[in-house]
């Protein structure tokens, strides 16, 4: 198997591009995909301060690496989620990456700094763990960006993530979510712009970037995410991809190109009229108390619970 560019020995085959690459030209391919996403969707402007959501996994560390390499002023923010050994190892990976590059890593430990953790929040509220986790992340990244004066919050969502979300939203015809599923959301209501520069790359490609760049990332799966619906959608899409390479990119990038605008009118009003200020934290919310503060209040009142795999409804 030879590199498409230099005819040297290839280390990775990308059926969706009908191409094989050596390390040097795979890295160049990856950089081009990220630059194209940033430019096509006007994600980051010159001089912007970027806050990268860093979990310690392959996508967030690849993203941070790529942004730093391109000269962006990108700091990381890592949340200690309190998911046992999994969280401890994730934190070690995030810190090691930042130390290696002399990059700034901000940290929030949910238990030490906020008085709760993800397993306890899930148990206290009856939410699925991924829901409690996602809510906490969105709130705390917004808050840190606002308090730190960042212009942009960048997350490591990749093509597989976005295709899986699109698949789920399409199966249920959630037209409001479909209208919002864009890789760059403008700043509004005091929240920084939110961008996803990896949307043109698959998970296999971001993992390969990390292997080739010698980035030590959290390889293990979150024990609380096992068997969730999102993973099931990814499995279905990868089955289609194996039979017909390019399916995921055609589905998601085709949606952005030709379909998302058709759902814009289904987005509930973005005007400030329905919003008020959370009576706990001051964030914009549609209720008296925002969802995050409500969860925190209940989780703090709950006895801490150990990490255990969630029960799934079939």
């Amino acid at each position: 198997m030879k590199c498409r560019v230099c005819r040297g020995p290839a280390v990775i085959d990308l059926p969706r591009h009908n191409a094989n690459f050596c390390p040097e030209h795979f890295l160049a391919f990856t950089r081009r995909q990220v630059v194209r996403a940033i430019e096509d969707f006007e994600m980051i402007a010159p001089g912007d301060r970027v806050l990268v959501a860093v979990s310690g996994g392959k996508d967030s560390l690849a993203l941070w690496d790529l942004l730093l390499e391109h000269g962006y002023a990108a700091d990381g923010l890592h949340l200690g989620l309190g998911i046992g050994d999994y969280s401890d190892q994730s934190t070690r990976c995030a810190r090691a990456f930042a130390d290696d590059r002399g990059a700034t890593l901000l940290e929030i430990d949910l238990r030490a700094d906020r008085g709760f953790d993800v397993p306890t929040a899930a148990a206290a509220t009856g939410r699925p763990p991924c829901s409690a986790c996602g809510l906490s992340k969105r709130h705390l990244f917004d808050e840190a960006a606002r308090d730190g004066g960042y212009d942009v919050v960048a997350t490591g969502h990749n093509l597989d993530d976005e295709a899986a979300v699109l698949f789920g939203n399409t199966l249920t015809w959630n037209t409001e979510y479909l209208g919002r599923q864009v890789p760059a959301l403008p700043a509004r209501h005091g929240f920084a712009r939110k961008v996803k520069p990896l949307v043109r790359l698959t998970e296999r490609e971001t993992a390969a970037w990390c292997v080739l760049r010698r980035i030590d990332y959290q390889v293990e799966e979150c024990p609380l995410a096992a068997g969730n619906r999102h993973l099931g959608y990814k499995e279905v899409l990868n089955t289609l991809e194996a039979r017909s390479p390019g399916t995921k990119a055609a589905f998601y990038l085709g949606f952005l190109d030709r379909a998302v605008a058709r759902f814009r009118s289904d987005i509930a009003s973005d005007s400030d009229g329905g919003l008020q200020t959370c009576n706990r934290c001051g964030s914009a919310t549609t209720n008296e108390t925002c969802a995050f503060c409500s969860v925190v209040e209940r989780a703090r009142a709950h006895q801490p619970v150990p990490v255990s795999a969630p029960r799934r409804r079939r």
Partner: peptide, 21 residues
């Protein structure tokens, strides 16, 4: 298409992540 030898040690690393981001 690489040929793995009988005395090789290889890792088959999953790349699929789930959950909240």
């Amino acid at each position: 298409d690489a040929l793995l030898a009988d005395d090789d040690v290889v890792e088959v690393r999953p790349v699929i992540s789930g959950g909240a981001r």
